[in-house]
Design a protein around this nucleic acid. Structure first.
Lengths: 248, 248
DNA sequence: CAGTGGTCTAGACCACATC
DNA sequence: ATGTGGTCTAGACCACTGA
């Protein structure tokens, strides 16, 4: 399929972009289209160079951009594979909430997972029309038996067909690994907004704290390879949980 | 000075590291030593390649690592310069606190700036002995006349000789630009811990909020090129200010 | 063993900034 | 006009993996 148009994948209407960038963008496209899926070995740099009619050095530069974006992993002697989001060292790539002892391994308790319609705020965050189909997940994170974080997750249903049933079935600890396995969605980037709020009645009940307790609230939007917002979530954490960040 | 030992800067006891990495590390050393200071034009890649007796491609790879670490900036036709931390686009590289309207330009109000001795907690954070000389800065950030953030900054005095007087004189808005200009310290990396706290009496007074108001607290350690902690600071922000983060 | 990616070289041509 | 970095090529040798 792809080899038929490989003779000149590039240089048609791609403006003045350098070859290695055009090539990189085409490789991203091939991952997005599902031609290559997570964990899969992709052709070697020499093979790709031939396919795209560029020199090995140029192909290498294209691939190296994918490495810095963590889209692929290279191993000498083995080859280049599409990054799996559930590899151990990738597991908490986006997870910044930790308890005092820096352990961040929490059990998940699913409270509910139901299909629904986007309200105005959700539609705005997900870049959808109001009333579009979404999936709502309400989940608790516990640490040594105590609830520490409550999560409200909203997913685009159009990108995750039948997602509510599947999620309810699997109840995964790590969401993005499921998105990858089941829906071929790779979460590439997230934006978070952190603020301090006072616990309301509902939080007090769910998290077992007094009303008015200062909680850490994190609002997240998660983007896929194409730059679409796939998920938005709101997390509220009890005192003792903090948000760690390192720059750059 | 440096050209005398340039014939073989590399390859002596540098283990099996690739040439481009050895070269890069030596370039970092030359910035740390003050041989090259912020804003300065460094030799061209061909000149550096000759000096280090490597090919242009290898020199380029060394320099490109410095670019990704934002230590230098390259411009075609002009050359390569050591990054200035006070350039406009670098100004808020480490500043994640914003108000609702995303403006993060606050005026600084200096409350105090005095030399002192590190207590146990400060010594630990700064990796110093207890009682070591430090500089303490107490500062307020205001937005449209209202206080929004209160900052407690602690600096290593040994790396900023006579720093208290100098800071008191200049009262800079952007600390790291002063560190760079005056002390040739480049802040390269910061770690932050964000949590929610209830305002105590002191916060209430300084920030003009009620005791018990949920505040956002950010604790930061700032590292220089050599990996030493130069500064630690604690910030407390009023409601309406949030912490923005994007990954990766 | 053959094939992979990692390092290194030596050249070419170009767009751009500066004088 | 000169020199800079940005792109691109075509080769070389090596370390490592897997069959």
């Amino acid at each position: 399929m792809s080899s038929e148009i490989s003779a000149d994948r590039l240089d048609t209407a791609e403006a003045n972009k350098p070859l290695y960038r055009q090539m990189k963008e085409d490789l991203v496209r091939r991952v997005m289209s599902g031609e290559w899926v997570a964990g899969q070995l992709v052709p070697s740099e020499t093979a790709l160079a031939q396919e795209y009619s560029v020199s090995v050095g140029t192909a290498r530069k294209a691939i190296e951009e994918l490495v810095t974006e963590r889209l692929v992993v290279r191993q000498r002697g083995r080859g280049t594979t599409i990054t799996r989001n559930d590899e151990r060292y990738e597991r908490f790539r986006f997870y910044r909430l930790h308890s005092e002892d820096r352990s961040s391994i929490y059990a998940s308790v699913y409270l509910s997972c139901v299909p629904g319609r986007a309200n105005a705020a959700e539609a705005k965050r997900l870049n959808l029309k109001r009333g579009a189909a979404v999936i709502r997940v309400h989940r608790l994170r516990t640490h040594e038996g105590r609830p520490v974080v409550v999560e409200n997750i909203v997913l685009r249903e159009d990108r995750c067909p039948n997602g509510a049933a599947i999620i309810n079935n699997q109840r995964p600890d790590h969401f993005y690994s499921l998105l990858e396995r089941v829906f071929h969605i790779m979460i590439n980037r997230v934006q978070e907004k952190v603020l301090a709020v006072a616990a309301v009645e509902e939080d007090a009940e769910t998290l077992g704290v007094a009303v008015g307790t200062p909680l850490l609230e994190v609002s997240r939007e998660a983007f896929d390879l194409g730059g679409d917002v796939i998920e938005c979530r709101r997390m509220r954490a009890v005192p003792g949980i903090h948000y760690l960040n390192e720059m750059p």
